[in-house]
């Protein structure tokens, strides 16, 4: 079985194993570096494209100081006119942060929304990720008052998930606010 332990062979063995492992990891890292970046970029592109009208080119990510805004992208048409914004926005939900990508037209109308990450309760708040649900469909072209009906707004909340719905609405409101403030500049 195992060899006898002495200071020298223990140090030599650990060093040797770590060197071999580090070399292997370095190799795998180099090989997978490209595909990982490509996959991450493709995912980011897909999430932006999902919330914006088709066509036009999408800018690099801009940063913003506004509350809850992680960053935003500007979509411009071929003749240089701004056609829409995609805003990455975060609020506190029921179980943790809810991060959304919100597509907003320059006049402040919501084009579409999608959930980037969340930790809401499965079967309740997590329903906000269901693409074809009434809650999600109402955002397409939404331009009413941005708070849930219980609070006097125009947003239909998810049944039994008012806190998630409020968080979602607040995130969208942050995005719309940002786009409005950009328009005034």
């Amino acid at each position: 079985m195992a060899a006898k332990s002495s200071l020298i062979n223990m140090a030599a063995c650990l060093t040797g194993v770590c060197l071999v492992c580090a070399a292997l990891l370095g190799f795998v890292y180099v090989v997978t570096d490209e595909p990982i970046k490509a996959a991450a970029a493709a995912e980011a592109q897909a999430s932006i494209a999902k919330v914006l009208p088709e066509g036009g080119s999408i800018s690099e990510e801009f940063s913003s100081e506004a509350e809850g805004i992680l960053g935003y992208f500007v979509q411009t048409s071929a003749d240089g006119e701004t056609t829409a914004y995609a805003v990455k926005t975060v609020t506190g939900g029921f179980g943790g942060p809810v991060t959304l990508m919100v597509g907003v037209l320059p006049d402040g109308t919501v084009f579409n929304t999608s959930v980037l990450s969340h930790s809401e309760t499965p079967g309740l708040g997590a329903k906000c990720t269901e693409e074809k649900s009434a809650f999600r469909e109402q955002w397409k072209g939404f331009k009413g008052v941005l708070s849930v009906k219980k609070d006097g707004g125009d947003v239909d909340a998810i049944t039994a998930s008012t806190i998630t719905s409020r968080a979602y609405t607040k995130a969208v409101a942050q995005a719309v606010e940002l786009v409005k403030s950009l328009g005034h500049e």
């Binding site: 195992a2 650990l14 194993v17 770590c18 492992c21």
Partner: peptide
């Protein structure tokens, strides 16, 4: 067979 007994756990974990 070549790992000294006293450091076998760290080696395995690595």
């Amino acid at each position: 067979p070549i790992v000294p007994d006293k450091v076998h756990i760290p080696v395995y974990i690595v």
